[in-house]
Design a protein around this nucleic acid. Structure first.
Length: 887
DNA sequence: CGCGTCACG
DNA sequence: ACGTACGTGACGCGT
C-alpha cells in the first residue's frame, strides 16, 4: 500500500517563518521560511517514506467562502513582506525535490488537501496531512492522519481518530461544529459571541452537532447561554459552513501525477548551494545512493578533520610560524563545566586549515606559545571568552587579545536561546556541521571525558568550527547594528566579570555555622508543633502530603489547584491562616526550611579551599540582557525578611580592615520608562525628586500628598510594578488581591495620568509586530515571533514581553556600562578596592577604609552617568563591615 | 527529570 | 473566552 503526504504549504511556510530567526544569506535574501520548510520536508521524507506527495497553496484573495460571508478572513494581517518574498523560493525548492505543488482559484489549500485526501483514501492509499492548522483535523479517519506542527516546524504531533478524541473529546467531524460554535478569530469566523472552547465542548457533549444544538435550544443549561444560541443561531450555522473543508474541488490532476520520483540529489544540492544551506547538504547523504560524487565530497569536507597535529616537543620550531598569525580560533578543554573547580586538559588552535592540539603541560612549557597567548596584537577567536580566560588564568598563563567570542555574538543576535552550544551556533550560521556535546560526551551518568585521538580530533573540530563561524557572526552583528554592543560592552564586561568571579567573596564560616544552628533549632521546634497540631507526623516539604493534611484531614477550603493536586503556595496559605493555627506554623517552617537548605547548607557546599565563594555570572542566559548567577546564585540572597536578611552577615571583605560597599540604583526601571516613553508627568516627578509611589498614589487617587495613606501607596506601588511588567487587569488583581474590575480602574486612571506611558505601550507592541523584535536603548534586540500568534495566551505574553523588555533590558545595559567604566576608572586611579558582585541594579564592592570616600564618590558618579537620560539616575551608596551592614 | 515552591531584582 | 503579571536559579519531592 502506498502513502500520500499532503502538505499545507502556506501554513508550514508561515510556521517556519515565525519559528526561525530572520536570517539572510550573503546576498541579503531572507531564507528562514525556506530553510524551515526544507527541514520539515526532509524529516517527512525520512520518517514517512511517502510514495505520493503534494504541497497545496492558497491561490487568490477571494474564495467561494467569500460569497457566503464577505468578511471571511477579513481581520487577517497582511503576510509580512519578508515571508511573501520567500514563497517563490519555496516553490523552487519543491521543484528541486520533484514535488508537485498546486493552487487553484477560488479555493484554499485546505480544500485541495481535503479533496485529495478523500481521493487517496478511496484508492487505498494511506494519507498523511501536514499542517499547523487544527482545522485539518476534521479530515481524520481510519486512513487519514494529520501531523500538526507543535513548536517550530519539525516538532510535530500525530493525530488519528483516537488522538482527536483524547484531545477534544470529539469525533473529527465535530471539529467543524466546534468551530461553528466558538468561531475563529484568525479567519474572522464569528461563531457564537461569548462561547469559547470550554462552553462549546460542553454543548457538543450534550448534542453532537450545531444543527441539533440549535434545534434543542430549550434544553440547554443557563438562561444567558440559551439566549445567545437563540440570537446567533444563523451565525453559528454559517460559521460551521465556513469551517467545513470542501472535498470536491475540480482538480486537473490525478493521483498518479503525485507519484514521487527518485530524488535528484544534484539538483537539490544546486539549490542548497544557491540559497547557502550548507548544513542541509550534509543531510542529503541519507537520500542519495552514496555514489553521488558531488555531495559526498562536500559532506566529508565538512566533518572530517584530516590535519590535526598533536604538539610534542620535537615540533616546536615547526609550529612557531603558525603562532605568528592573528585571528586563530582557540578552544580550551577542561575536566568539568565549572571553571573555578575544573582543571585544564588541553588547547586546540585552528586557522581554518591546520589544527593544532596542545596538551596543557606542553603549553605551559612552550615559551613561544606563552608569548603568543600574552600578545594582545595577535587576536584570538573563542567560544565563551570568560570561561576561556578563567581557565588560562587558573594555569597562571597570561592571556590577551581574546577579541571575539562566538557565544556572546550568538547571544546578541538572538538572546532567546540561552547559552547556545557551539554546534547550535554553527548550525544557525549555516557554517558547517558539528556534533552536539551530548552526542560526543554522552549525558547524565554516561558522560565521560574524551581521551587520546578522539579528544584531539574533537577539539580540533571545535576550534575549526569557531574559526569558520566567526566571519558569519561578525557580519551578522554589523548588519543588525549590534557590533558596538559586542565590542564596547559585552566583550570588555566579560573580562570584568572574570576578575570578579576569580577573586570571589570571602565567607565568615563561623557566622554561617551559628546561623545554621539557630535555624535548625527553629525548624525542629516548628516541626514538632506542626505534627502536634496535625495529630500525625508527615513530610511538610511534600506538597502532596501537606495538601492531604490541610484539605482532607483538617478540612480547610481549597482555594487553588495545581495540575497535580491542591496548591499549598504561600499566597493560598496566607488566606487560610485565620482558619487554623497550623497554617502560620507551616508558612514559617517553609521560610526557615528554605533558608536552611538553600542558604546555609547550599552555600556551605560552595565554599572553596580559599574560604571564598566563586559564583559564575552568566552573560548569555537571559532574554533581556541581564546577567544571571549560578553555583551558587548570589543574586537571590535574602533581604526582604529580617530573619533571612541576616544571611548577608556571612559575606565579608577578603582583607582585614576593609569594608563592603553597596551601591544601588533607585527606581532605575521606572526612570528608564520615564525616559523612553517621554511621558511629561512621570519625568516631572523624577526631576523634582519625588517619591514615585507616593506621587503615583496622589495622581491616581486624586489626593494631596498628606492624604496618601499607606494602603494607597502600596497599591500605587503595585500599579507601577504592573506597568513595568506589561500590565493586565488580572495580573494586578492577583498582585493586590482585589477584584479584577477594581484593578482595571486603577490601570485606566494610571494611563489617564501618564498618557505618554500608554502611548509607549501601544507603540512598542506595534513596533514588535512590524519589525519582529524590540530593542533597548543600546540597540540590544529580542525577537518576539509569538506576537503574531493566533493563540491568545501566547500573543498576550509576547505583548507583555514587548512592553517589559526594553525597560528591563535598558536598565541592564546601564549597569553593564557602569561596570565596564568603573573597572577602568579603578585601574586608572590605581585603587585597591574591587567589584565583587552585581545584583541587577546594585554593585557590591570591597574597599580599604582609606579609599572609602573616594570610592563612594567614584561609584556614584560612574553609575549615575552611565547613560544620560532625560531624568536623573540616582544611586544610593552604603558601607559596612559585611554585606548585611552595607544597607 | 518535571513540578511546585520560593529566594532575588 | 482566553489566562498571565517581567526576568532569573535552587531546593525537595516523587515518578
Amino acid at each position: 500500500m502506498g502513502k500520500l503526504v499532503l502538505i499545507d504549504g502556506n501554513s508550514i511556510a508561515y510556521r517556519a517563518f515565525f519559528a526561525l530567526p530572520l536570517l539572510t544569506n550573503s546576498s541579503g535574501i531572507y531564507t528562514n521560511a525556506v530553510y524551515g520548510f526544507t527541514m520539515m520536508l526532509l524529516k517527512v521524507l525520512e520518517e514517512e517514506k511517502p510514495t505520493h506527495m503534494l504541497v497545496a497553496f492558497d491561490a487568490g484573495k477571494t474564495t467561494f467562502r467569500h460569497q457566503d460571508y464577505q468578511e471571511y478572513k477579513g481581520t487577517r494581517q497582511k503576510t509580512p513582506g519578508e515571508l511573501a518574498e520567500q514563497i517563490p523560493l519555496v516553490r523552487e525548492m519543491l521543484d528541486a525535490f520533484g514535488i508537485r505543488h498546486y493552487a487553484i482559484e477560488n479555493y484554499e489549500a485546505d480544500d485541495i488537501i481535503g479533496t485529495l485526501a478523500r481521493a487517496g483514501s478511496g484508492k487505498d492509499l494511506e494519507v498523511l496531512i501536514v499542517s499547523g492548522d487544527k482545522d485539518l483535523l476534521q479530515l481524520v479517519n481510519e486512513q487519514v492522519n494529520v501531523l500538526l506542527t507543535r513548536k517550530g516546524v519539525t516538532e510535530t504531533e500525530r493525530y488519528d481518530r483516537k488522538a482527536v478524541a483524547d484531545r477534544y473529546g470529539l469525533t473529527p467531524q465535530q471539529i467543524i461544529d466546534l468551530k461553528g460554535l466558538m468561531g475563529d478569530a484568525s479567519d474572522n469566523i464569528p461563531g457564537i459571541p461569548g462561547v469559547g472552547e470550554k462552553t462549546a465542548l460542553k454543548l457538543l457533549k450534550q448534542f453532537p452537532t450545531v444543527e441539533e444544538i440549535v434545534d434543542h435550544v430549550s434544553e440547554l443549561p443557563g438562561k444567558k447561554l440559551r439566549e445567545k444560541v437563540e440570537t446567533y443561531r444563523d451565525q453559528a450555522l454559517l460559521s460551521k459552513k465556513l469551517a467545513t473543508i470542501y472535498t470536491e474541488v475540480p482538480l486537473d490532476l490525478q493521483l498518479e501525477d503525485l507519484l514521487l520520483a527518485e530524488l535528484d540529489v544534484n539538483r537539490i544540492a544546486d539549490f542548497f548551494r544557491k540559497v547557502e544551506f550548507k548544513t542541509l547538504l550534509d543531510r542529503l547523504k541519507k537520500f542519495s545512493g552514496a555514489d553521488e560524487e558531488e555531495t559526498k565530497t562536500v559532506c566529508e569536507e565538512q566533518d572530517a578533520i584530516e590535519s590535526v597535529t598533536v604538539f610534542g616537543e620535537e615540533a616546536r620550531d615547526e609550529w612557531e610560524p603558525f603562532l605568528k598569525q592573528s585571528g586563530l580560533a582557540l578552544f580550551v578543554e577542561m575536566t568539568g563545566e565549572n571553571p573555578h573547580h575544573s582543571d585544564v586538559i588541553g588547547l586546540a588552535l585552528s586557522d581554518g586549515e591546520k589544527q593544532l592540539y596542545i596538551p596543557i603541560e606542553e603549553a605551559m612549557d612552550w615559551q613561544a606559545f606563552r608569548e603568543y597567548l600574552a600578545d594582545g596584537e595577535r587576536h584570538k577567536v573563542v567560544y565563551d571568552v570568560k570561561k576561556t580566560s578563567l581557565a588560562l588564568k587558573r594555569k597562571e598563563l597570561d592571556v590577551a587579545g581574546l577579541s571575539f567570542d562566538v557565544l556572546l555574538a550568538a547571544y546578541l543576535l538572538d538572546p532567546s536561546e540561552s547559552q547556545m552550544e557551539l554546534n547550535e551556533i554553527v548550525k544557525r550560521a549555516e557554517a558547517g556541521y558539528l556534533p552536539s556535546d551530548e552526542e560526543v560526551y554522552g549525558k547524565g551518568a554516561k558522560r565521560r571525558q574524551l581521551q587520546g585521538e578522539e579528544l584531539e580530533k574533537h577539539l580540533a573540530r571545535k576550534a575549526r568550527a569557531i574559526y569558520q563561524v566567526y566571519p558569519v557572526l561578525d557580519r551578522q552583528l554589523q548588519e543588525a547594528g549590534l557590533d558596538a554592543l559586542m565590542f564596547d560592552l559585552e566583550m570588555p564586561l566579560a573580562a570584568v566579570l572574570a576578575n570578579m568571579e576569580r577573586h570571589g567573596v570571602l565567607v565568615n564560616r563561623e557566622r554561617l555555622d551559628e546561623l545554621g544552628v539557630e535555624l535548625k533549632r527553629s525548624m525542629d521546634l516548628l516541626q514538632e508543633e506542626i505534627y502536634e497540631l496535625a495529630g500525625v507526623p508527615f513530610n511538610i516539604n511534600s506538597p502532596k502530603q501537606l495538601g492531604e493534611i490541610l484539605f482532607d484531614k483538617l478540612g480547610l477550603p481549597v482555594i487553588k489547584k495545581t495540575k497535580t493536586g491542591y496548591s499549598t503556595s504561600a499566597d493560598v496559605l496566607e488566606k487560610l491562616a485565620p482558619q487554623h493555627e497550623i497554617v502560620e506554623k507551616i508558612l514559617h517552617y517553609r521560610q526557615v526550611g528554605k533558608l536552611y537548605s538553600t542558604y546555609i547548607e547550599g552555600l556551605k557546599k560552595e565554599i572553596g579551599s580559599d574560604g571564598k565563594i566563586h559564583t559564575q555570572f552568566n552573560q548569555t542566559v537571559t532574554a533581556t540582557g541581564r546577567l544571571s548567577s549560578t553555583e551558587p546564585n548570589l543574586q537571590n540572597i535574602p533581604i526582604r525578611m529580617e530573619e533571612g536578611r541576616r544571611i548577608r552577615q556571612i559575606f565579608i571583605p577578603s582583607e582585614p580592615g576593609w569594608y563592603m560597599l553597596s551601591a544601588d540604583y533607585s527606581q532605575i526601571e521606572l526612570r528608564v520608562l520615564a525616559h523612553i516613553s517621554g511621558d511629561a508627568n512621570l519625568q516631572k516627578a523624577f526631576k523634582e525628586g519625588k517619591d514615585i509611589h507616593t506621587q503615583t498614589a496622589m495622581d491616581v487617587f486624586g489626593v494631596a500628598e498628606d492624604e496618601v495613606t499607606s494602603l494607597m501607596r502600596r497599591q500605587a506601588k503595585a500599579v507601577n510594578f504592573g506597568i513595568l511588567y506589561g500590565i493586565s487587569g488580572y495580573g494586578l488583581a492577583q498582585g493586590l488581591d482585589i477584584p479584577q474590575k477594581e484593578a482595571r480602574e486603577f490601570i485606566e486612571r494610571y494611563f489617564e495620568t501618564y498618557p505618554g506611558v500608554k502611548k509607549y505601550m501601544d507603540s512598542i507592541i506595534a513596533q514588535a509586530k512590524q519589525e519582529g523584535y524590540v530593542t533597548t536603548l543600546s540597540g540590544r534586540r529580542r525577537y518576539l515571533p509569538k506576537i503574531h500568534s493566533r493563540n491568545f495566551g501566547e500573543r498576550s505574553f509576547a505583548e507583555r514581553t514587548a512592553m517589559n523588555t526594553p525597560i528591563q533590558g535598558t536598565a541592564a545595559d546601564i549597569i553593564k556600562i557602569a561596570m565596564v567604566r568603573l573597572d577602568r576608572q579603578i585601574r586608572e586611579r590605581g585603587l585597591k578596592g574591587r567589584m565583587l558582585l552585581q545584583v541587577h541594579d546594585e554593585l557590591i564592592l570591597e574597599v580599604p577604609e582609606s579609599e572609602l570616600p573616594a570610592m563612594q564618590e567614584l561609584v556614584r558618579d560612574v553609575m549615575e552617568h552611565a547613560l544620560e537620560l532625560s531624568v536623573p539616575l540616582v544611586v544610593d551608596v552604603n558601607c559596612g563591615k559585611n554585606w548585611y551592614e552595607a544597607k
